[in-house]
Computed example of a mutant assay.
Amino acid sequence: MTTLTTTDALAAFCTAAARAPYVTVDTEFLRERTYYSKLCLVQLAYPGDGETDAVLVDPLAEGLDLAPLYALFRDVGVVKVFHAARQDLEIFAIEGDTIPEPLFDTQIAAMVCGFGEQVGYETLVRKVARAQVDKSSRFTDWSRRPLSDAQKVYALADVTHLRAIYEYLAAELDKSGRKAWVEEELDILRDPATYRVAPPEAYHRLKMRNPSPRTVALARELAAFRESYAQANDVPRNRVFKDDALLELAGLKPKDASELGKARLLLREARRGEIADGILAAVAAGQAIPKEDLPVPPKQKGREQINGALADLLRVLLKTKAEQAGVAPKLLASSSDLDDIAAGARDGDWARGWRLKVFGEDALRLCAGEIALACKGHDVQIVPL
């Protein structure tokens, strides 16, 4: 097992990898006590079966610069293969301002190829690579050095087996003609905005029930302060204050430290100092917004709006279409999507691209009364009306 600890060694490996058709990539990181992930290890492999084609890169090694790796990521002649890539890509997008291209995510490809929803790496290793993954080092503090041999073996397996998985899934996509389906899914991962939360938009993550416009405005200002503080101090947003405390503050509307002290859900550390000052300033800003400029509360989808019988029929249709296409139902539409359709929605991911062809068109036809569902033996059939 080779661990690269110098920039020159990393550059030599990346030069060799640039001659390969693809390179598999994984990372190990910590995030429990920080806002941004702390990159602790990078695993890389390209096609081959020798000791030099799969390595560990130690980003914690003194003086090591990841510039050669980012150059490889920008080399469009080499496919960069990940499994469940989002968190890995976030690290590279934030630390290196780079999103690998071209990109391939085996979890997305596996869903398109009929392996089910959010299939795990271990499942693919077992079913495709016909191997087993040693789980003994799963819960590891990857920032500690030195790494044990067991930890290194565990980490390296995340990219060595990935080679066989990628080659199998790529061949399956070529045969089925569904490569474009995967490319559509990857567009979100390619977008730099996916990995950066703008503080003014942070309130969209909150779950508010029937809020007033003023409550939304207060929640927006509080969430923006929390996000800015968390980013600037590199601490998890929930370490500043949690969502339930934020919503309590939006209802309490404290004007000073005395009123702030009445918040039951606020952490002790947030009742004083910079955080307390930020909370009071955010509340004041939310209260100062003129009535005509208040944000519009998100539309609440009441149960009375949803045609329950139609939603049930859509679930049957979704299962039928997913089985026919050999893809995970969740990849076509979520349960929430089906409720939205039954409530009259006519826009969403399900209504665009390949999803529209596979499921969306028939969903709309079912809502319009143009088709019906019939059972023949064990099969559900779509019947034109």
Rank of each mutant, 00 (worst) to 15 (best):
F104K: 09
V125D: 11
V128Q: 10
L60I: 01
A110K: 13
G96S: 12
A110R: 08
D174E: 12
D158G: 03
G48A: 09
L69C: 13
L69Y: 07
A54P: 02
Y70L: 09
D97L: 12
Y121N: 01
A45K: 00
P146L: 00
R74N: 02
K127D: 10
D134Q: 08
D53R: 09
R145I: 01
L60R: 06
Q132M: 05
A93S: 13
I165P: 05
D158R: 06
Q43E: 00
L89H: 12
R74P: 03
E184T: 11
Q118T: 14
S148F: 10
I108V: 15
G177S: 11
D97W: 08
S176D: 01
V128A: 09
A150W: 04
H83I: 03
T123F: 15
K80S: 03
I108G: 14
P68A: 00
V159G: 04
P100F: 08
V81Y: 06
V55R: 01
S136H: 03
K80E: 02
D141W: 14
R86Y: 12
G50M: 15
V79G: 05
R163M: 12
A45F: 08
V112S: 02
A157C: 06
R74D: 04
A45S: 04
A164H: 11
A93T: 10
D49Q: 11
L173G: 05
Y166M: 07
D174N: 13
A93K: 11
I108F: 15
V55S: 00
M111D: 04
L186F: 13
A71W: 08
V125F: 07
R144K: 14
P47G: 00
K179I: 02
R86T: 07
D49F: 00
Y154C: 10
A45L: 05
D134E: 07
E184D: 00
R145P: 06
Y168T: 13
W181K: 15
I99A: 11
L72M: 04
F73T: 00
L173V: 09
V119E: 11
T106C: 13
A180K: 12
F82I: 09
S136C: 04
A131D: 00
D88Q: 07
L103A: 08
K135S: 05
E183P: 05
L162V: 06
A150V: 01
G116V: 04
I94S: 11
F139E: 07
E101Q: 09
S136W: 00
M111H: 05
Y70R: 13
T160A: 00
F104C: 07
S176E: 01
W181N: 06
D187L: 15
S136M: 02
F92G: 06
F115I: 01
V125Q: 12
A45T: 01
R138C: 15
L69W: 05
S137E: 14
V182R: 08
A93G: 06
